[in-house]
Each structure stands twice: as structure tokens, then as C-alpha cells.
Design a protein around this nucleic acid. Sequence first.
DNA 1: GCAGTTTAGTTGAAGCGTCAAGCATCGAGG
DNA 2: CCTCGATGCTTGACGCTTCAACTAAACTGC
Lengths: 144, 144
Amino acid sequence: MRFVAVVELLPGVLDSQLQRDADVSHFEYYVLAMLSEAPNATLRMTALSLKTNATLPRLSHVIKRLESRGLVRRAPCPEDRRATNASLTEEGIVLVVATAPGHVRTVRENVINRLTEEQIGQLDAISDQLLRRLDPDNRMNPPA
Amino acid sequence: MRFVAVVELLPGVLDSQLQRDADVSHFEYYVLAMLSEAPNATLRMTALSLKTNATLPRLSHVIKRLESRGLVRRAPCPEDRRATNASLTEEGIVLVVATAPGHVRTVRENVINRLTEEQIGQLDAISDQLLRRLDPDNRMNPPA
DNA sequence: GCAGTTTAGTTGAAGCGTCAAGCATCGAGG
DNA sequence: CCTCGATGCTTGACGCTTCAACTAAACTGC
């Protein structure tokens, strides 16, 4: 199916733009973006891993790298001392703010602008349908 | 967009099924499948890399692994001695034949069966539209 | 309270993808 | 022919993801 080809190709396109513009992978950007939307730009590791569909080890490694680049800060959670809170630093916020428009534009150029209004509606309905199975608990898109 | 979530999640689903059933990644399966469709189950490395949207180094590594597992055979191309022909072995053919139905079923369960006839048509038209930009030369789907 | 289990997260080793460099062959120009 | 650039592919090193193993803290039942 042609759709499979789209699924194969699209991530690469999104990745290269972010790599060029901000030297982050699409996944790293997504992590930063999820943090930036959270109250106080802070989330617990587990919550963040659910939102980003990452395994905990993966997230742990990524956060360590982002921390070493000064974009994220880790602090033990006071309420549950097993847990770790990840927060955006000032620098991290700056990066997200600076990078978001370019990223949005890339999505726009590669997806939205290629389709009619009607098709966008169709695609959204189709995606919704598919997510019922791919993400039954709606982890990736909590009713923000 | 919800569509982005689909693009993130779907590859993982397809991958796990193939990993479970045949101990190959989705990409490895795709390589084997492309070979199986080619005349004489043989393709030159460059042609195969275009069809699978892989860099040549990546393909080279993958083919080496598949060869070491006895699924693929490499032979220098007689017409152009720089080139390498990759072919499916008997064993490789057996794997593709044995694995294809399960893979098709997975795609069916996760995509096709979730949508109405009408939506499938819409998705195909949308994919076609998007591929005009994502794959302008139509490398991934030569008019078979 | 205290053993056993569950939850939260980190770490290190192993495997795959990417990138830069390399080698061989082909083809075009003089 | 012979050189020079282009083409086809391979290789090795490095980075990221995954998996298994581990530590530590929190619940649970007795």
C-alpha cells in the first residue's frame, strides 16, 4: 500500500529538518515539546515516557544527553523518592520556542499544504480510527 | 496532529509482529520482499537501495547479515564488475512465503479492517498526494 | 513492623543506522 | 591508451535503541 511508503518516508523528512535547524532528533524534539507543554515544564520520567511512546531506558539515556547539553534538568521527586522529575531549563525553553515554527512549517509543507481541506478532515478521521487500536489508552494524546 | 501519532506508532507494530514470527525487522522483511518480487529474485544493490529507501551502507550491512543467515546470496555482476547482485536463496524464498500471510494479516488488522471502504479509498488518494512530495521520483513504488 | 512484591529509574553490553573514507571499475576526453 | 572524474559498493568508527540486570523506594498482607 502507498500508505506504508508514507509511513516509511515521513519520519525521515521531519528528522532531517530538526537535525539541521536545532541539532536534535525528532524524538528529542518531541520530548522537549512535551515538557514545554506540561505545567511548570516538568514531568516525571514515567509520564514522559508514556507521552512520547518511549521505553524508560530509552528516555533515561535521552534525558541524560539532553541534560548534559543543558536543555533539561533532573531532580528527585519530593513526593515519591523513587521518581525523577525532568524539567526544561531556560535554554531548553529557548530552543523549543525557536524551533517550533520551523517544525510546524515543515509539517505544513509536507502534509497539510499537499491536501485539500476535505482530505485533511478525512485524514484526521482516519487517524482517529487507527489510533483506537494503535494507542487504545490514548497515551500519546491525552485530552489536553 | 493525530496523523503524526499514527506515523510514530505503526512502524513499531509492524516490526514486532515480524520480529516475533520470523526474527527479522520490518526493513529486513521489506528487503527480502522486494527481492522476491524481482525477476529471478535478484537485484543490484543500488536498485534495491532505491526500492527500500535505504542508504547504500545500510543496505550493505543488512545484506551481509542476511547473507550470514543464509537468506540471501551475493554475487558480482558480470556486466559491470563494480556492481553486486543480491539474490534470495531457497531458504530466503521459504521465509518470505511463510511470513507474508502473517504480515498481510497484521496490516489488515491494524489498518484495513479499521476503516470503511470509503476511507481506504481516501487514504490511498491522500497517500498518493503526499508521495508526490515525499518521493518525487516514485522510487519506492515503480509502476510495477 | 517486616517479608514479599510492585513500581521507578539507571546502567552497561550488544546490535543497527549513519557518516566519512576507501577501493575498484567504468567511461569520456585528449 | 591513459588520465581523470564518476559510479558501485564495502568498511570501520561512532551514536542511539534495546534488553537484561540492578538499586532503591513504596505498597501489601500478615
